[in-house]
Amino acid sequence: MTDSTPVIRVDRVSRWFGSVVAVSEMTFEVRPGITGLLGPNGAGKTTLLRMMTGLAATSTGTVTVFGEPVRDNPPLYRRLGVMSEHETVYGFMKGREFVTMMGQLRGVERLEEAVDRAIERVDLTDAQHRPMGTYSRGMRQRMRLAATLVHDPEILVLDEPLNGADPRQRVHFQHLLRQLAEEGRTIVLSSHILEEVEQLAETVLLVVNGKLAASGGFRAIRAALDQRPYHVRVVCDAPRRLAALAVGIGSVEAVNLDPDGGLVILSRRVLDLQLELPRLAQSAGISLRRVEPLDDSLESVFGYLVEG
């Protein structure tokens, strides 16, 4: 995927509202596959997505999609499917009517077939003839996704798409997104649910305070943060002895004893630790019961960045 041609290019894009800088000097490229946009509320994710879809102007910089400027370029919108974070729907419309209208607006040929296909994809065939005002939040989101898919877009931009979905719907949604990505589509999704981004996205864009704090694969981002120590928790049968030995490892910065008898080792080069620790334990006759990284989740990476 990483060798493919960039589909979306964001080049030194900034956006400010009065004196508030919402997005500052962001540059990145998006390629086919799933890209997750992650950041805390107010980080500038939605503003960035709106600029990437042409809904909002940039203050400076350019956004191009398939090499063309995305702003004020209606013909290009045929290739884009956008689902905003706002869940408002036309309550007076039935689900099928809504998807049909969106298909008509996007000039879909063989409309009825396309509508059937889109609604089937989100598993709402049974509810398609009900007014959308009667839908649950999760159902509204799925029908909105059907409307986003009806014209078979090459790019999907989804702002917090899993909002309001129950666990079963989440699983279905994740499966669907993976399927869409496998078909060669470019999907950009934002989410504040870190686990979901971690599970879904091949590439992560971390946005903090309107700036691109990091981008790339999740582990690549973590590796780029080597200036911060990894926390590794070790459970063994002789924690004090192991602590004394572990401080001798060059990459270890500190060793703390847990009240529950475990050790927490801070290391800048976790690979060294992975190699050295078992060797030390074996030579000292210490039995290691568990070795687990405490901060190898996206949430902890994100936390570091926010703190930084």
């Binding site: 042409g54 809904l55 290009l76 706002h86 408002t88 036309y90």
Partner: peptide
Amino acid sequence: DRTLANLTLAPL
């Protein structure tokens, strides 16, 4: 109600 994007993102 933020539904205008449904129209403005149409290729019209």
